[in-house]
């Protein structure tokens, strides 16, 4: 850049800048038409709902009800803990699956085959009723109890959701690990790094770029799937909303309320995902994409500088 500018300066007078193009832009009539149609449909839908036999006042009335708030926090807790189990288990399974050791890779294959091949609701019920197989839980020196006492609804929910998630996360992580160029492993090994260190320092950080977007998807999916654990007696947002609905005589209204809360939570999670993706993109592109806030600030500064120039 600077070089070309210099040479232009050296040659003396820079060539006269031609007149800026002033052309009439193409009119996109289709856009106006489709916008009008979309708005009309939206208005019709909103109108239909507002005319329906739904007591809308019940929604704001219970929106911050303490039971709903407890439900929201339990849903979030379940999501976070199950995803933790899922991610740790997934990384472990993916590494096992890709290992040269035929025993570990077969175990990982079998695990994924079982947990991905059965519905998560069925798995939840299986965990809940495992007391039929194991009457006691006996970790010899530490702990001994009846299975039914040990397997609380929370633990059932966590195991059911987390172990199922691990199978899906394993495939996501495996795809990520395979996406890293083999030359990276070779370079690390040529430097004398061990297998584990190569994974931890070189391969996994690069695999994260591939792993994070589908994992964000999984988190959002998990948040919604937690509504299934009502079946194993663990109360969370959906269960509390149902309870309130039955007691207050506004069952459908509470479904709308729950839907609104799920939407709010998934929206917040999406924002978090954006920033995590941005973090792992470092080094892969020449400059990081600006955050939304940086974009806003950039627009503001260009706007003010324009004013100054005028």
């Amino acid at each position: 850049m600077t070089d070309t500018e210099k040479t232009a300066g050296d040659q003396g007078t820079p060539p006269a800048r031609p007149e800026a193009i002033k052309a009439i832009p193409v009119r996109h009539y289709g856009r106006y038409v489709s916008a009008v149609v979309a708005i009309a449909i939206l208005v019709a839908i909103i109108n239909a709902f507002s005319q329906g036999k739904i007591n809308w006042h019940a929604v704001p009335e219970y929106f911050f009800d303490h039971r709903i708030m407890t439900g929201v926090s339990k849903t979030l807790l379940l999501t976070v803990l199950s995803m933790l189990i899922g991610i740790v288990g997934g990384v472990l399974l993916a590494v096992m699956r890709l290992s040269k050791n035929p025993v570990t890779s077969s175990i990982a294959w079998f695990y994924i085959w079982f947990f991905r091949g059965t519905p998560v609701l069925v798995q939840l019920f299986l965990w809940f009723n495992l007391g039929l197989v194991f009457e006691y839980i006996n970790l010899m020196p530490f702990y001994k109890d009846y299975w039914s006492n040990f397997m609380t609804p929370l633990l059932t929910a966590l195991l059911g959701l987390g172990l199922n998630e691990a199978a899906y996360m394993a495939e996501i992580c495996r795809a990520g690990l395979l996406a890293v160029d083999e030359g990276q492993t070779e370079a690390a090994q040529a430097l004398g790094m061990s297998h584990g260190r190569t994974l931890r320092r070189v391969v996994i950080p690069q695999a994260m770029r591939v792993i994070v977007p589908p994992t964000g998807n999984e988190v959002i999916n998990m948040l919604k799937t937690t509504s299934l654990v009502a079946a194993v007696q663990y109360p969370e947002l959906f269960r509390y909303a149902q309870d309130i609905g039955q007691n207050s005589g506004a069952p459908v209204e509470m479904y709308f309320l729950a839907a609104a809360w799920y939407l709010i939570m998934t929206s917040v999670l999406s924002v978090g995902q954006y920033y995590i993706e941005r973090y792992y993109a470092r080094g892969s592109s020449r400059s990081l994409p600006p955050t939304p806030w940086q974009k806003v600030r950039a627009h503001l500064t260009t706007f003010s500088s324009r004013k100054v120039m005028a």
Binding site: G183, E186, A187, Q189, A190, L191, S194, H195, V202
Partner: peptide
């Protein structure tokens, strides 16, 4: 063993045709 091979590789530097720098590090 892998660890013994790694030990010996410490003393041998290698430069690759395609550089193979770690892209997530400066």
């Amino acid at each position: 063993k892998d660890s013994e091979v790694a030990m010996k590789r410490r003393d041998i530097g290698m430069v690759f045709q395609r550089f193979n720098l770690f892209p997530h590090m400066t």
